[in-house]
Write a protein that binds this DNA or RNA. Structure first.
Length: 196
DNA sequence: CGGAAGATTTCT
DNA sequence: GAAATCTTCCGA
């Protein structure tokens, strides 16, 4: 079942935890790909020194964060890789959740082709990798996740999930915010990004 | 308008 | 351990 708007209209921390185990779906001309979310990070907007919208720095890039929850926030990092975020909360609360790793479920051949590797646990184990595998790029910026092209759904079989909280990755510049336990992973998943 | 740095990945 | 590579942001 497709996830509805209300799901996204809460704080990033709540949404981030609940995202684990859900399935992200992307329909493209090349085909459909699906992956189970196994690793995310919450970014808490104006209060969070690691967030792009820290101190209300509104700009063309962060604009979509200021709208209501349930839209895609996508940006290019290091001039090479895209990162997929989900906008959460209500209007004028610029919070997002970064998707960091997926467990490939459907369209795996297409993922292998896009990523140029055959190793299952190397297809989506990082924010840049999963965007590459799913075929996500700048053209999906601002897309409505309650639409038909790019959206989330509940898995057909609901397994019980054990969640682990840890420090976020590669935000050493963020002062004390770098120690917040706002990264969430599924315990024992083989598909999370490796380093800590 | 110029320069620096980045929510990463890959190769050596 | 360092390169690849370019958009975005900030200061002048």
């Amino acid at each position: 079942m497709k996830i509805a708007r209300e799901f996204y209209q809460r704080s990033s921390l709540e949404v981030a935890r609940d995202l684990l185990g859900l399935v992200i779906v992307h329909q493209t001309e090349e085909g459909i790909t699906k992956g189970k979310i196994v690793e995310v990070e919450a970014y808490m907007g104006t209060l969070d020194a690691a967030a792009h919208s820290f101190k209300n720095t509104r700009s063309p890039r962060t604009e979509v964060q200021y709208g209501e929850g349930g839209y895609a926030y996508i940006y290019l990092i290091y001039g090479m890789y895209y990162c997929m975020n989900i906008v959460t909360n209500i209007i004028d609360k610029p919070e997002v959740v970064l998707l960091r790793a997926l467990e490939p479920m459907e369209g795996i051949e297409l993922m292998k082709q896009r990523r140029k590797t055959d190793k299952l646990n190397n297809l989506c184990s990082g924010p840049g990798k999963l965007c590459s595998a799913m075929g996500i790029n700048k053209s999906s910026y601002g897309v409505d996740l309650c639409g038909t092209q790019l959206y989330l759904e509940t898995p057909e079989i609901r397994e019980s999930i054990e969640t682990i909280a840890s420090k976020r990755i590669n935000i050493d510049y963020a002062g004390e915010a770098k120690d917040y336990l706002w990264r969430f992973t599924i315990k024992d998943s083989k598909f999370i990004s490796v380093k800590r």
